[in-house]
Design a protein around this nucleic acid. Structure first.
Lengths: 207, 207
DNA sequence: TTGTAAATTGACTAGTCAGTCAATTGATTA
DNA sequence: TAATCAATTGACTGACTAGTCAATTTACAA
């Protein structure tokens, strides 16, 4: 069951999230949002100045929630590999528990309806990923490559993994996918053998 | 320079592609498409019965073009690793040469405006990926994991790589990103050491 | 109880949009 | 040349939309 919305704002958020994913931004009239949320049209515009304000706020909320979920319990792990493993499981769990929020982020990540400032603030919630990668490079567990690139690769891989896990037909299969997918990502990130910090000649210094 | 559009259909396709990426589906009135394409509104509806028909056709066209570009020259390579390397370079090249087509695919992959049948036909263009993966598993170069999962991971990784490569500030940096990104993907796919087909005890048979 | 401000309502406006269609133009063939 | 059909035009229609606002209700402090 969906978490019970507290106030009017939450009802509007939940309804708008569902409808935007189902029908797109311009495909969802504000009149429909308010009707489905059980409020009058005027009330929606009391809480959000415009339709754009609504989707900006929704976007920020979902991004913050996802970042929070992925970050959960990370500081209980010590080394980069353990942290990334936990991060990956958090991400998959979030994707499974909130499929419509995943779809929303995917659908509106590259869309012009979100203001530049909201998009930037949303991205900033995931800055902790960079610290994680850099830590792993310093500790010698992760290959000394461009950290931004590794973040892009990792993040996109997560989304591919979540998409595939969503098609699993049993909990057993789901578990297998998660395990294999996280292994894929770790193999992409990890230094081959050495447990020491990288001392090779470098074409470039990334940290 | 953009490839010169041949007939009216192509002009409409090119204009619609640009506007849909800039403004979204519902954010782009057919009147704007026809105006920018230099034709009358009626002409657009002569070539496409409805606005939905237009975006379906556009989606199919872009998907087919992308699949064709990625497949290019693959049969000149022999083993799976070489094929995947070529595939990756094709994909990155396509992404760099046709950024608006990439954005279009990303933006409309998870969108409800594309009909189910068009989406399925679009996906079918990429079936050759599965043959490639299965070949690699059989030859013992790729790990014996669920091929669908590997395709999802690989495809999403490509899109992450292309996104990052798009931010490169020099051809040199671009080259480095491509090299490192393809290495990430290959390490995710590849069997650790053995050059022989997998003979380990399996929890599951994937081919 | 009374007063005040916040919350809520929904009819309304000014504007926009997908798609139509009767009329015109262009190309091809007999 | 005449006849035929495909291509093209753009004014028009019926339907829909974001946002407004004057009126009403609710919450709550004095």
């Amino acid at each position: 069951m969906p978490d019970p919305p507290a106030g009017k704002q939450d009802v509007i958020f939940d309804t708008a999230l569902r409808l935007f994913v189902e029908r797109g931004f311009f495909g969802t009239p504000t009149s429909l949002i308010s009707r489905e949320a059980g409020i009058a049209t005027g009330t929606l515009f009391f809480y959000f100045k415009t339709k754009e304000d609504l989707i900006d706020a929704l976007y920020l909320r979902v991004k913050a929630e996802a970042a929070e979920a992925m970050n959960r319990g990370l500081d209980q792990e010590t080394d980069a590999k353990a942290k990334l493993n936990r991060l990956g499981k958090n991400a998959v769990l979030f994707g499974l528990e909130h499929p419509e929020k995943m779809k929303f982020m995917e659908q509106f990540a590259h869309t012009p309806f979100i203001s530049k400032s909201a998009r930037e603030e949303g991205i900033s919630r995931f800055f902790f990923l960079k610290d994680l990668i850099v830590q792993g490079i310093q500790e010698g567990q992760i290959r000394n490559l461009d950290p931004e690139l590794l973040i892009f690769m990792m993040a996109s891989s997560f989304s591919g993994l979540i998409a595939r896990v969503g098609t699993a037909t049993s909990p057993k299969e789901r578990e297998i996918f998660v395990e294999q997918g996280l292994e894929f990502i770790w193999n992409g990130l990890a230094k081959k053998s050495s447990r020491e910090p990288d001392r090779r000649k470098k074409t470039r210094e990334y940290m």
